[in-house]
């Protein structure tokens, strides 16, 4: 299996740019595993973080093809050792059974998550962590009964003086 890589880049914060970026990935046959987007301190600029399965040659092409796009300002592949990577998941678990409720609270605590909502049938929790931590949490709570979940995709910053 190809390694999962993370690329961060700045783009012009305007209509249609997300489409053009994702369209480039599609057209060149690169498969986006996750993508997260938001404006940065300069409201004219948005930062995108993409994680993608690719070998080093493909990764090189992705960076170059992104750099070539008029609306892309700056591109960097992130070194996981020198970056902080985080993802958030919102998860709704079926907790009609009191045992399930107890299990849920135990797992959420173990993963330093938050309980956001409780009603008689279900609990919504929030967990933040590295993507593989989220994967772990999901697989551990699967037996409880997942009603639905939503992941944000990875977002990341480099440590120390390093910046995009």
């Amino acid at each position: 299996m190809l390694p999962l890589n993370t690329i961060a880049f700045l783009v012009e914060n305007k209509a249609g740019v997300l489409f053009k970026v994702s369209n480039m990935f599609r057209r060149r046959g690169f498969n986006i595993e996750s993508i997260s987007v938001g404006a940065v301190e300069d409201p004219q600029v948005a930062r995108m973080t993409v994680s993608v399965y690719a070998d080093s040659r493909e990764l090189n092409q992705i960076v170059l093809q992104l750099e070539k796009m008029v609306d892309v300002i700056k591109v960097k592949r992130l070194d996981p050792m020198r970056s902080i990577m985080r993802e958030m998941v919102l998860i709704k678990l079926d907790t009609v059974d009191p045992m399930a409720r107890e299990e849920t609270l135990k797992h959420v605590n173990a993963y330093h998550g938050l309980i956001l909502h409780i009603d008689p049938e279900s609990i919504i929790a929030e967990i933040t962590g590295e993507p593989k931590t989220i994967d772990e949490f999901i697989s551990k709570t699967r037996p409880i009964g997942i009603e639905e979940l939503s992941r944000t995709g990875v977002t990341a910053l480099e440590k120390g003086y390093l910046k995009l």
Partner: peptide
């Protein structure tokens, strides 16, 4: 002139 063509 197009860097993305190199090593493609």
């Amino acid at each position: 002139i197009d860097r993305s063509e190199v090593d493609k």
